[in-house]
């Protein structure tokens, strides 16, 4: 695995192994990301799913080296095209960010600068990695906006963010992320703040863009149904760990981990019309004070004494799960 050369066609673009990010606070050490491993290939879309506080956003920020203090990546490795990003100097990391790995955030109203035009913001992002003349920057920006489906892109460069609708703003953010032909985009809940109909549009456009440009996506979401429409593979995260992973269809059809099964049962689309939605009892545990063993144990109806020991990742072909009592019959119990 570690010796994979970046030229091999099936070598992953992004290889994350045993990534651990902790926040050292006065109350103690918060293990927000606890030994996360996965790999991402060219053009692949991975859905990273979990409840609030499961560590999925921190995982995203750890990938691009932007964890806010007091948090920091304490161990593990993130390899982008074979280059190790963990432990890189801030200056070297800055050169990677935006050029080879980019990030898109939840609320485009908050991420775009309200007092700069779209064109100015795109030019800043371009000049961060390339020396371009003003006209060349405009041409590149126009192309990028056209690609994400913004009509009359040239004229819109002089508009300010508040003159765009929510969906259009997010398209602008995506266009900025794509400016340098980025290989990997980490998208942190990018459609959560949008209308459902706009969500669907953006999802299908992102899918197409990823195919077309060979950009790989890490799509972070709390919403299994959004991710299921988009992702090739799903990683389910709980309390800082990946508890189940596999191809989208398999994970959805035959979840192995009781937590995944619980998430699926709580989806409105999966329930009988007219019946109450099922919930997973309890709440996500505090990352400051995780229960010993399997962190899902207190909320799990299948838990036994065995679960006080942390279950290892059980690999199956193309997928894996962390559970002593997996659902092996294939139906969501």
């Amino acid at each position: 695995m570690s010796g994979a050369s970046p030229t091999t066609s099936d070598a992953p673009i992004l290889e994350v192994s045993d990534l651990t990010t902790q926040f050292h606070t006065r109350a103690g050490v918060v293990k927000a990301v606890d030994g996360v491993s996965f790999s991402l290939h060219k053009g692949e879309i991975i859905g990273l799913v979990g409840e609030s506080g499961s560590g999925k956003s921190v995982t995203g920020f750890s990938l691009i080296g932007l964890v806010d203090p007091p948090g920091r990546v304490v161990s593990g490795s993130v390899k982008l095209d074979g280059q190790e990003l963990v432990g890189l100097s801030p200056a070297a990391l800055r050169k990677v960010r935006g050029a080879r790995i980019a990030m898109v955030f939840q609320d485009p109203m908050m991420t775009l600068n309200p007092v700069l035009t779209i064109g100015q913001q795109m030019q800043l992002a371009l000049n961060a990695h390339e020396k371009l003349s003003k006209s060349a920057a405009r041409a590149r920006s126009t192309d990028a906006l056209t690609r994400v489906g913004i009509p009359d892109a040239e004229a819109r460069l002089d508009a300010y963010p508040h003159q765009f609708s929510g969906g259009m703003r997010q398209r602008v953010a995506i266009a900025i992320a794509l400016l340098h032909g980025t290989r990997v985009i980490v998208a942190d809940e990018p459609t959560t703040a949008l209308d459902v109909s706009i969500q669907a549009q953006i999802l299908s456009e992102m899918r197409e863009l990823a195919r077309e440009m060979g950009t790989a996506l890490v799509w972070i979401s709390h919403d299994l149904s959004t991710v299921s429409a988009l992702a090739d593979r799903i990683l389910v995260m709980y309390a800082g760990r990946i508890v189940e992973e596999g191809p989208t269809a398999q994970v959805l059809r035959a979840p192995r981990h009781p937590y995944t099964a619980g998430l699926l049962r709580s989806l409105p689309a999966m329930a009988e019309p007219g019946t109450d939605l099922e919930q997973i009892p309890g709440t996500t545990p505090s990352l400051l004070n995780l229960p010993q063993g399997c962190p899902f144990r207190p909320r799990c109806d299948r838990a036994t004494d065995l679960c006080s020991e942390a279950p290892p990742m059980t690999p199956e072909t193309g997928r894996g799960y962390r559970c002593h009592h997996p659902l092996l019959d294939g139906t969501p119990a």
Binding site: I64, L66, R94, K95, V96, R97, G98, A99, A102, M103, F105, Q106, D107, M110, T111, L112, N113, P114, V115, L116, L124, A125, N127, A128, H129, A173, I176, A177, L179
Partner: peptide, 26 residues
């Protein structure tokens, strides 16, 4: 602490550019 600065950092802008172009104007 705002997302604007996070997004600018994610796009690879240098800290100096972020301060002089984004923060100063805001």
């Amino acid at each position: 602490l705002s997302d604007t600065v996070k997004f600018a950092r994610a796009a690879g802008l240098s800290e100096m550019t972020i301060l002089s172009r984004h923060v100063l104007k805001l």
